[in-house]
Design a protein around this nucleic acid. Structure first.
Lengths: 120, 120
DNA sequence: TAATATTGTTTCCCTATGGAAACCATTGGC
DNA sequence: GCCAATGGTTTCCATAGGGAAACAATATTA
């Protein structure tokens, strides 16, 4: 069945309006936790619970949604190990790893501009 | 009166949770249009109407909100020219201009990854 | 037979975001 | 006096994002 889910529809709709590369990147790094998830995985594959704890425990639903979206966009892979209790590991793809350039630029800027001068 | 508006409250609340530089940058580039506004101004100062048109005409309220937020964070300046009809020019500060490194990384990534491979 | 551990899914709900439309302020020109 | 042009502000409203809590699935272990 070649059904198109709401996720795909949203993705394609966004892709349409993706004029420049910046907008394209913003489409991928969309949502409250997305960028931070990538940051966590840049240091290596991690389990669901590990990611959740590292981000300050967002709701399970939210984290699931974000991970699914990133998986659909081939930013990361999801591997289920048939154990009990189950172990699910998320790892960046080459695609996802290449986002490190963007994250790195964000890190540098953020560190060099801790607070607006007039508020210190 | 040293009143603290909702904008400042939100800003400080966010600043508290600003663990790493990435989160700090995400706090600044928050909201649907923020990053694109910076992109527009990187090519030079622009008027309210010019920015609005370039972004595909978001609502005036939304654009005003975003511009105010960026102004409060010293990313840009707002200059009112006492003419009739009035002319208001927005320009990046040094602070704001330095965001070009982040935007540039986004641009490069977006251009090099137009669409996920499995969807082509 | 139950309890446990892990990673979800599902339902419901609250809030923030952002959009539409109406209105305001200014002043030179008709 | 009235209109036009620009850059707003204000009010109201629809939607989407995200949170809490309950439930599901599973096999080992007690």
């Amino acid at each position: 069945m070649e059904t198109i889910g709401p996720d795909e529809l949203k993705y394609l709709a966004n892709a349409q309006s993706t004029g420049c590369g910046i907008e394209r990147t913003l489409t991928v790094l969309d949502g409250k936790w997305t960028t931070l998830i990538v940051r966590e995985l840049l240091t290596g594959p991690k389990r669901f619970g590990e990611i959740r704890a590292a981000l300050g425990t967002p709701s399970a639903k939210t984290l699931t949604d974000r991970l699914r979206s990133l998986e659909h966009q081939a930013i990361l892979t999801r591997t289920v190990h048939a154990e009990v209790p189950p172990r699910v590991v998320y790892a960046l793809t080459e695609h996802g790893t290449s986002l490190s350039s963007v994250l790195h630029a964000m890190l540098i800027w953020g560190e060099q501009h801790p607070l607006p001068p007039e508020r210190r």
